[in-house]
């Protein structure tokens, strides 16, 4: 088994850590070696939350620049900021709905142009899947399910060494029963987005 390295970046409150723990739990079900690390000291204060998941053999729990085979960004500017984690053959999945940093609101900095952002990522990596995951989450019934949309897309690419069925089992374990249905719909919407991209 080869080692697959995944970096997920998000803004605090977007549910990155839940998505990561579902993937790790799925790996445990599939008996795939899994190591995970997260930086979340200020998650609830609007900062950036980054998690690293390493599937397969090895020892490290963090992913250095150039090591990520997969980068998933829950927010487009954060995807771009984390691009240095990628190498030439990486696959990038990004939400296209911005969350404006307050620094932009008070006139410190300009939010990057989304079209240009996609061109850059496409030029530097092997594959980009970019779509409005926030809109799909809203359509699925809860805008907060954006994490499950992106999770669905990620799992559908087949680039992780885990079974979709195991991810569903992990979701049942980690998500409150009354929220499960909407999260499943969001997951399926993300999976469909991945299929559209591949077509």
């Amino acid at each position: 088994m080869k080692t697959t390295r995944l970096v997920i970046v998000a803004v605090g409150g977007q549910g990155n850590l839940l998505a990561s723990s579902i993937l790790a739990e799925a790996a445990l079900i599939d008996r795939v070696p899994i190591r995970m690390s997260e930086i979340h000291g200020m998650a609830q204060r609007g900062g950036v939350v980054e998690s690293a998941l390493i599937f397969g053999p090895g020892h490290s729990t963090i992913i250095a620049d150039g090591e990520a085979d997969l980068l998933v960004g829950f927010e487009p500017a954060e995807t771009l900021r984390a691009l240095g984690k990628c190498h030439r053959e990486s696959t990038v999945i990004t939400n296209l709905a911005p969350l404006m940093p307050f620094t932009v609101n008070i006139g410190q900095g300009v939010y990057p142009d989304l079209k240009r952002l996609q061109e850059i990522i496409r030029a530097k990596t092997a594959r980009l899947i970019a779509f409005n995951a926030t809109a799909l989450a809203r359509d699925a019934g809860n805008v907060l399910a954006v994490n499950m949309v992106l999770l669905g897309c990620l799992v559908e690419t087949g680039l992780l060494p885990i079974q979709a069925a195991s991810v569903h089992t992990a979701m049942e374990k980690k998500i409150k029963p009354d929220l499960l249905e909407v999260n499943r719909r969001a997951f399926q919407a993300g999976a469909a987005a991945a299929r559209e991209n591949a077509a």
């Binding site: 204060r45 609007g46 771009l80 940093p101 990057p112 240009r116």
Partner: peptide
């Protein structure tokens, strides 16, 4: 090992420091 992608030419990205809720 594979080099990291070159990020020297990325456009400026506004900072996102943690902030009071």
């Amino acid at each position: 090992s594979r080099p990291a992608v070159d990020v020297s030419d990325l456009p400026a990205i506004p900072q996102r420091p943690p902030t009071l809720c």
